[in-house]
């Protein structure tokens, strides 16, 4: 048994394509030792809808952030070199283009949830020199921490400030007793961000923040007209961050 067999078969398959030997190739190719779990939640364009009317006080945001940061071993570093996967900030920082000196009081200083937008046209993926960050077939903008060389080009490329760099060993700021033993930490020198809980989707579970949000976050497939995200976007007014720069975020905010 050889694990490079799959690669060999890929090449072999390509080379016999011209001989119209497809049936035989199909039979071989199904022999690959790697399988997608039957529990995997599938989509072609994962998206998140944030119901901002349900997220107001710090008490509304905290459980979401805690849910994410605790299971993903995200440290809290009390400096400018902090790591954030999901957090919140005031309206003028989240939607800086929406300049309005006479904004209604209720919205003027309202806080909004922030996370990676999993853009349909992600600039971070375009600039990465090693494909360490890439777009999956289901639309998730993924990080391969094994491959990242830490050049931080993606951080310059991201127009949303969604990416964090491990300036130091994150374990210095993690409590070993509280680490989630089923998920890795990161090493110093790599970039990280929200991964839409790809590991939970593979297990048939929704992202941790969605689960903790009591309905404030809706997660689903934008390409499926019957999905809950499509339904709610059809009914209510929604906006996205910095729509003018063409990145097509897959995180929507219901106002």
């Amino acid at each position: 048994m050889d694990t490079s067999r799959r690669k060999f078969l890929t090449y072999a398959g390509v080379s016999v394509l011209g001989l119209a030997a497809m049936p035989a190739v199909d039979a071989w190719a199904s022999d690959t030792p790697y399988v997608v779990s039957s529990k995997q939640l599938k989509a072609t364009r994962w998206a998140m809808v944030v119901d901002t009317t349900k997220l107001n006080s710090e008490a509304d945001f905290a459980p979401l952030i805690e849910a994410c940061h605790s299971i993903h071993n995200v440290p809290d570093i009390p400096t400018k070199q902090n790591i954030k996967w999901i957090w919140y900030d005031e309206r003028e920082r989240v939607f800086p283009d929406d300049e309005n000196p006479y904004m209604a009081e209720a919205f003027e200083h309202k806080n909004y949830l922030l996370l990676c937008n999993h853009c349909f046209e992600p600039p971070c993926v375009r600039v990465c020199p090693t494909k360490a960050t890439f777009k999956r077939e289901d639309g998730i903008v993924m990080m391969d921490f094994h491959r990242c060389i830490g050049c931080r080009y993606c951080m310059a490329g991201c127009p949303y400030g969604a990416r964090s760099f491990n300036f130091m060993d994150p374990r210095l700021h993690l409590d070993a007793a509280k680490e989630n033993k089923e998920f890795p930490t990161r090493t110093k020198g790599v970039v990280e961000k929200c991964n839409f809980c790809y590991e939970r989707l593979a297990d048939g579970k929704l992202p941790a923040c969605v689960e903790a949000s009591k309905g404030a976050l809706i997660f689903g497939d934008l390409d499926d007209p019957k999905s809950e995200v499509r339904k709610v976007l059809k009914e209510r007014y929604s906006i996205r961050r910095k729509p003018s720069i063409g990145t097509q975020p897959n995180v929507y905010y219901l106002i």
Partner: peptide
């Protein structure tokens, strides 16, 4: 000296990515 993981520098050659200007 700017790289976070300089020992992985050769990844740029191992996984050439023509859409990246850095490449």
């Amino acid at each position: 000296v700017d790289l976070g993981q300089p020992q992985r520098l050769m990844n740029v050659l191992l996984h050439p990515t023509p859409n990246s200007i850095l490449f």
